[in-house]
Amino acid sequence: MFRWEFFLEIIKKPDNIPIILLIIALIVYTWIALYKAFDNDKRLAEGRPVWEAEPHNQEKVHTWPHLLNIEFIAAIILMAGLTLWSVFLNAPLEEPANPGVTPNPSKAPWYFLGLQEMLVYFDPWIAGVLMPTIIIIGLMAIPYIDTNPKGNGYYCWKDRKFAISVFMFGWFLWMILIVQGTILRGPGWNFFWPGEYWDVHKVVPLVNVNLYELLNIDPKTFWLIREMPALILLGLYFLLIPYIVSKIYRKFYEDLGFARYTVTMILLLLLMSLPIKMILRWTLNLKYILVTPWFNI
């Protein structure tokens, strides 16, 4: 039962306006990028130069006025937009800080909601520390592991299918988690459909189980033995998959070399671990795969 007043109540919050901008920008710029990429693919297929390399576009023009005027216009539009936004919408200010009263839901700033969402599926040290670190390092590593010389400095898709699809996957995953965290996560970080009332009293069944419980292993068993299936599963995930992939896509492996291939696969498998864990949670109510005395995965 969708009700507008509940939906608008959340959308109307001034701090959620950037989310709306984000969704619009995501649609517009993804469309532009892909449109230009497919256009260039077509040009290459027909043996024509890409749009950026057309003689007309390659022609050198003077910075003054050709670049400066568009920069100036962009600056003006941006400032006008920001001024109008600031005139008509006031930044929120809630009650004075009070350590004694915890608002429900208490949410991180919107750009960190992806991380907060990960907390549902992973322990804090993975969701809050390991994953952000991996994201930053992984992003910085992109130029060093993507050695494909094609597609440098122009939009394209066919020449960089793998790189673009992996990046877009991570990019959209991040964005979707943010939108979900803003609009669909209510009190107690419970899931609410759009237009559903954010009921503080909502109780969801807590029926998540660990992998060994799924397999009916006695929790009292020595952990190393108890976690054998988990260790095997993780071993298969992080070792066997890269091995098999390297055999199937032999050229891909050879192009990258061992070191690059290893780093690429680790990053890729870590990236995939989030959706995999999400799906396992939804379907099998899986809490942890591996439970050790020190940490859980």
Binding site: N69, I70, F72, I73, I76, I77, M79, A80, T83, L84, S86, V87
Partner: peptide
């Protein structure tokens, strides 16, 4: 075309600045 955008956006910026001053 660019010139037209320039003129329109400048006018908008000018008006929004005036608006900000007036509102304040």
């Amino acid at each position: 075309m660019r010139f037209r955008i320039f003129v329109v956006s400048s006018v908008i910026l000018f008006i929004s600045a005036l608006l900000a001053v007036w509102v304040d």
